[in-house]
């Protein structure tokens, strides 16, 4: 995999985009396109490499057309481009998912009307990739949240994710059997509220 330019190289290329030099766009794209696409594919090996290439193109096109959208004081250029490309990739996947679902539901209606057979929804490869990517995104999100939780809160989160958020289960897992029933109830409510609030603040779905 060819390497992304260093931070200094990237900044020099970006500064040229802010000048009148018409060759700056070409040099910028030549330096970033292949390594950015390869980096995305390395991060998301289950995705079609063409999707990664097009997401890298989207990110570069946006930046070369509006170079002031990047502020070097706020983020490193490589990180900015990767973030932008991941955003474009997610948009593409969302559009593709909607398209595939529309096609799939149309197909299912057609099959149903013609044959009357029971309908078993089978995922197309692209839908499988999208679900894989969504699951991966959720895993990464939970992992990030988990790192900000205390050990007790992590146990609580695991139980909530498994659908085991009852007081008795939490009390047993957290070793609070010595507390009075009223105190157990209070502590369980507090820890559940804290975990839910942290997930919500981080932008996660309600548990």
């Amino acid at each position: 995999m060819s390497a992304l330019p260093t931070h200094e190289e990237g900044l020099a290329l970006h500064e040229r985009l802010l000048t009148d030099d018409p060759t700056a766009t070409s040099d910028f794209i030549v330096a970033f396109l292949a390594p950015l696409a390869a980096f995305l594919h390395h991060q998301l090996p289950h995705l079609d490499p063409h999707l990664c290439q097009e997401a890298a193109e989207d990110a570069l096109l946006a930046l070369v057309k509006k170079p002031t959208s990047y502020n070097p004081l706020r983020k490193k250029l490589n990180g900015y481009l990767v973030m932008s490309a991941r955003g474009d990739l997610n948009n593409r996947l969302r559009r593709e998912k909607k398209h595939q679902q529309n096609r799939q539901s149309f197909h299912l209606v057609e099959v149903d009307a013609e044959s009357g057979k029971s309908l078993q929804s089978e995922e197309t490869p692209i839908l499988q990739m999208i679900h894989h990517e969504e699951q991966r995104g959720q895993r990464e999100f939970l992992e990030r949240c988990r790192r900000q939780l205390s050990p007790e809160e992590q146990v609580c989160l695991d139980l909530l994710l498994q659908g085991k958020g009852q007081r008795a289960e939490l009390v047993a897992a957290l070793g609070w059997m010595h507390l009075s029933a009223a105190e157990q109830e209070l502590q369980v409510k507090r820890i559940k509220d804290r975990v839910k609030k942290r997930l919500k603040r981080a932008g996660g779905p309600p548990l």
């Binding site: 009148d20 018409p22 060759t23 700056a24 766009t25 070409s26 794209i29 030549v30 070369v64």
Partner: peptide
Amino acid sequence: QVQLCRAPRAEAGAFTHD
């Protein structure tokens, strides 16, 4: 690489420069 250059500016002096 040539195709990915920005289009030359329209003003006479800038056009030749680009």
